[in-house]
């Protein structure tokens, strides 16, 4: 294979992208632009992971507070649903006056979306803990803190993890929209692919995006298995 010059060497061997050919699937593109693809993927994963973690860090105390104060619960749910209604392409610009054209804008926007899913699933998970279980723990002399950590969290974990999976997968997909402020990971490649009508770049970036979502989902499923060994015992 020849060294990858930007305009592919149409004379020296088979190339699937050049001025005359524009294939969807193209091995040459993968090898020529591998660094660019890897960089975009790393940025994509970075933005996704930081956003979901930020969402988790905010969502958890919020869910605990909302459970304690029912009035706060409807407020939290109302506000997060409202944010969720705003399209991502409109939410990022609205953050720009405060955070500028930086990755922070994308991370905060995505964290806000993740937050909505996470708060809901965490509240739902905690609510699903049977009252008898809670009462017996209190009867055994568990403190509030111990009750939460030893009893409620483990029992709520499956529902919470389901929410985390939904949040993660949709964040991977939404990160692409960050290309509006030039920090969209693989979205930057997609945008470039559209504007230069470069099919291989477009399809490659889209496929990697879906694969990333699947891969992160699998990681979360495996994590959940490790965290909840008792559910495995029941199933087998």
């Amino acid at each position: 294979m020849e060294a990858g010059t930007p305009v592919a060497s149409s004379a020296d061997g088979p190339s699937c992208y050049s001025r005359v050919t524009n294939e969807w699937i193209c091995g040459q593109y993968l090898s020529d632009r591998s660094q660019e693809i890897v960089d975009a993927t790393v940025q994509h994963v970075g933005i996704t992971v930081v956003s979901v973690l930020l969402g988790l860090v905010i969502a958890f105390p919020l869910a605990l507070l909302a459970r304690r104060l029912p009035r706060l619960e409807s407020l939290v749910l109302g506000v997060t649903t409202g944010i969720y209604t705003i399209p991502s392409l409109a939410l990022f610009p609205l953050l720009v006056p405060f955070t500028g054209l930086t990755p922070t804008t994308v991370v905060i926007g995505l964290a806000l979306y993740a937050l909505t899913i996470l708060v809901r699933s965490q509240l739902e998970g905690l609510r699903a803990v049977p009252e008898e279980v809670r009462e017996s723990a209190v009867g055994l002399g568990y403190s509030r803190r111990k009750l939460l950590v030893r009893i409620e969290l483990p029992l709520a974990l499956p529902v919470m993890m389901a929410g985390l999976r939904v949040a993660t997968v949709s964040t991977v997909a939404l990160t692409t929209v960050g290309s509006l402020v030039a920090y969209g990971g693989l979205g930057n490649l997609i945008r470039d692919g559209v504007s230069t009508n470069f099919r291989a770049e477009l399809l490659t970036a889209s496929v990697i995006c879906v694969l990333l979502a699947v891969a992160l989902d699998v990681v979360l499923v495996l994590t959940q298995r490790v965290l909840t060994p008792w559910t495995r015992g029941v199933r087998t």
Binding site: V169, T176, I190, V194, N197, V210, A213, D217
Partner: peptide, 18 residues
């Protein structure tokens, strides 16, 4: 629904346009 979530809307739009 799970599949719909994993496919970026941006990517699908781009593919359909190109």
């Amino acid at each position: 629904s799970n599949v719909g979530r994993a496919v970026p809307t941006f990517a699908l739009l781009a593919l359909l346009v190109v």
